[in-house]
Deep mutational scan, measured.
Amino acid sequence: SSGGSSILDRAVIEHNLLSASKLYNNITFEELGALLEIPAAKAEKIASQMITEGRMNGFIDQIDGIVHFETR
């Protein structure tokens, strides 16, 4: 797709992000992006959206560029 990722790509990214949230206590956007094979800024945006929508527990430290995952 030309304008970003398809629905399937997005679903795969979100699935992998949720998997990462179970493996890590926290991770930088750079590391997360590398893990998900997407730019760091996109990793931040998707993580932020999932947390806001209540689909993933955690919070974002924008100063240090880190996602902190919280286990249920």
Rank of each mutant, 00 (worst) to 15 (best):
S1W: 04
S1C: 11
S2N: 13
S2P: 13
G3S: 12
G3K: 09
G4F: 04
S5T: 13
S5L: 08
S6T: 12
S6F: 07
S6I: 12
S6V: 13
I7Y: 14
L8G: 10
L8F: 14
L8P: 13
L8C: 12
D9W: 05
D9Q: 07
D9M: 05
R10N: 10
R10K: 09
R10Q: 14
R10C: 09
R10Y: 13
R10M: 14
A11K: 09
A11E: 13
A11L: 12
A11S: 09
V12K: 12
V12H: 09
V12M: 11
I13Q: 04
I13V: 08
I13H: 06
I13P: 01
I13L: 11
I13T: 04
E14M: 07
H15I: 11
H15C: 13
H15W: 09
H15G: 10
N16I: 15
N16T: 09
N16S: 08
N16G: 11
L17P: 01
L17C: 03
L18C: 08
L18S: 04
L18A: 05
L18N: 04
S19V: 15
S19Y: 10
A20W: 13
A20Q: 06
A20L: 15
S21A: 10
S21I: 07
S21C: 06
K22F: 09
K22P: 02
L23S: 07
Y24M: 06
Y24V: 05
Y24L: 07
N25H: 12
N25P: 08
N26A: 14
N26M: 15
N26Q: 15
I27S: 02
I27A: 04
I27Q: 02
I27C: 07
T28P: 04
T28F: 03
T28K: 05
T28L: 03
T28V: 02
F29D: 00
F29T: 03
E30A: 11
E30I: 13
E31V: 07
L32N: 00
L32Y: 00
L32W: 02
L32V: 01
G33F: 02
G33Y: 02
G33S: 07
G33P: 00
G33M: 03
A34S: 08
A34M: 11
L35Q: 04
L35G: 00
L36M: 04
L36R: 00
L36E: 00
L36C: 04
E37Y: 07
E37C: 13
E37D: 14
E37S: 15
E37I: 05
I38Y: 02
I38E: 01
I38N: 00
I38P: 00
I38A: 01
P39K: 05
P39V: 05
A40Y: 05
A40N: 03
A40E: 04
A40P: 12
A40V: 07
A40R: 06
A41V: 09
A41C: 07
A41E: 14
K42I: 15
K42A: 15
A43F: 03
A43Q: 00
A43N: 00
A43L: 10
A43E: 00
E44L: 15
E44K: 13
E44G: 14
E44V: 15
K45H: 11
I46W: 06
I46A: 04
I46V: 07
A47N: 00
A47F: 05
A47E: 00
S48W: 13
S48Y: 12
S48D: 07
Q49N: 08
M50D: 00
M50E: 01
M50G: 01
M50N: 00
I51E: 00
I51S: 01
I51K: 01
I51L: 07
I51M: 06
T52C: 10
E53I: 05
E53C: 07
E53H: 06
E53V: 05
G54Q: 05
G54W: 03
R55K: 10
R55Y: 05
R55C: 05
R55F: 05
R55D: 02
M56T: 02
M56G: 01
G58D: 01
F59I: 08
F59L: 06
F59G: 03
F59W: 15
I60F: 03
I60L: 05
I60R: 01
I60G: 01
I60C: 02
I60W: 02
D61A: 06
D61R: 07
D61N: 13
Q62W: 15
Q62V: 14
Q62C: 08
Q62E: 11
Q62D: 09
I63F: 08
I63G: 08
I63D: 09
D64G: 15
D64A: 15
D64F: 15
G65F: 05
G65V: 03
G65Y: 04
I66H: 06
I66V: 14
I66F: 06
V67C: 03
V67D: 00
H68E: 04
H68F: 13
H68C: 07
H68P: 01
H68I: 10
F69W: 06
F69T: 02
F69D: 00
F69V: 02
F69K: 00
E70L: 13
E70D: 11
E70V: 12
E70R: 12
T71R: 11
T71I: 08
T71M: 09
T71E: 09
T71W: 10
T71K: 13
R72M: 10
R72I: 09
R72L: 11
